[in-house]
């Protein structure tokens, strides 16, 4: 598909557009958090503990008197970086594994796909909890663990694409002209199987954001005082009866963010999938 054709479809696709705008807002919030935030996100204020939303604190304050809006703006950066870095790891591993299985086929393929099936049978959230418990819950460890437990989907897509690509004429031609396996994989086959990888990466960010917030909510993710949407919700649970704002706003932020990535991913799927073109637009 030509690039400008894709751009036209992107403009026409409402799902992708709405999703794109949400993700863009998230970037703006994260990058400009220091300018946008009315308070220092970690500044404790004993005089305004658990203040309800008011003009001074638009989204209220938490149990240490910290401004929830400021914490949420900084939390956007955490959510964004965990999402992108962990999916980056997952995508690289998934491409490598899937490409090997699809390109070499036969026994290599069988062995690798067996391993993928095994990884898919492990309750991932259990595995993540266990690993985080053995290491410490620094943000880098969280990114690495989420990434290393969520590459299986990508590897399946890449494998399927490679299985069908490897008998195409241009691949056979490249091999006949003496190109190395690595060169064929990286410069000939990979560019032709990027669409499903991009789509599943975008959808993967959504689930990484959910996992990070769940971990932080349980107290094993991003550690306070560093703000994250999940750990604000955790204090929301402790003050459920008196401070609804601590539970409502960060959860809403997670919901909208995850929906944004999902809409963008699904929209991109529609744009790239030629089978859907006949009955839309």
């Amino acid at each position: 598909m030509k690039i400008n054709e894709a751009m036209i479809r992107l403009k026409e696709n409402k799902m992708a557009a709405v999703g794109g705008i949400i993700v863009l807002c998230l970037f703006v919030a994260a990058i400009f958090a220091p300018l946008l935030a009315p308070y220092d996100p970690e500044a404790i204020n004993r005089h305004s503990v658990l203040a309800a939303p008011c003009r001074a604190h638009l989204l209220g304050t938490d149990d240490l008197g910290r401004d929830v809006l400021s914490r949420m703006l900084y939390g956007a950066g955490i959510s964004l970086s965990v999402g992108f870095v962990s999916v980056g790891i997952a995508t690289l591993v998934g491409i490598a594994v899937g490409a090997m299985a699809g390109y070499y086929g036969k026994a290599v393929d069988t062995a690798i796909m067996r391993f993928v099936d095994i990884m898919l049978s492990i309750p991932t959230f259990f595995l993540i909890l266990a690993v985080i418990a053995f290491l410490d819950s620094s943000i880098w460890n969280i990114m690495a663990v989420i990434g290393l437990t969520s590459w299986m989907g990508v590897s399946r897509f890449v494998r399927a694409e490679f299985l069908s690509l490897k008998t195409r004429e241009y691949v056979l031609a490249a091999r006949a002209s003496g190109a190395s396996d690595i060169r064929i994989i990286i410069s000939h086959m990979l560019p032709n199987s990027l669409a499903p990888v991009i789509i599943s990466a975008v959808l993967g960010i959504a689930s990484a954001v959910l996992v990070e917030s769940a971990l932080s909510f349980l107290g094993i993710g991003v550690q306070p005082p560093t703000p994250s949407w999940g750990n604000i919700l955790s204090s929301g649970k402790d003050n459920l009866e008196i401070a609804w704002w601590l539970s409502v706003f960060p959860g809403l932020a997670i919901l909208v963010t995850v929906m944004g990535y999902n809409l963008l991913g699904e929209g991109l799927r529609d744009i790239f999938d030629p089978r859907l073109w006949d009955d839309r637009s």
């Binding site: 769940a214 919901l255 995850v258 929906m259 809409l263």
Partner: peptide, 13 residues
Amino acid sequence: FVGFAMPGFWLAL
């Protein structure tokens, strides 16, 4: 889309 994006623990809260 809402259901997909809903964090379970938030729904619980």
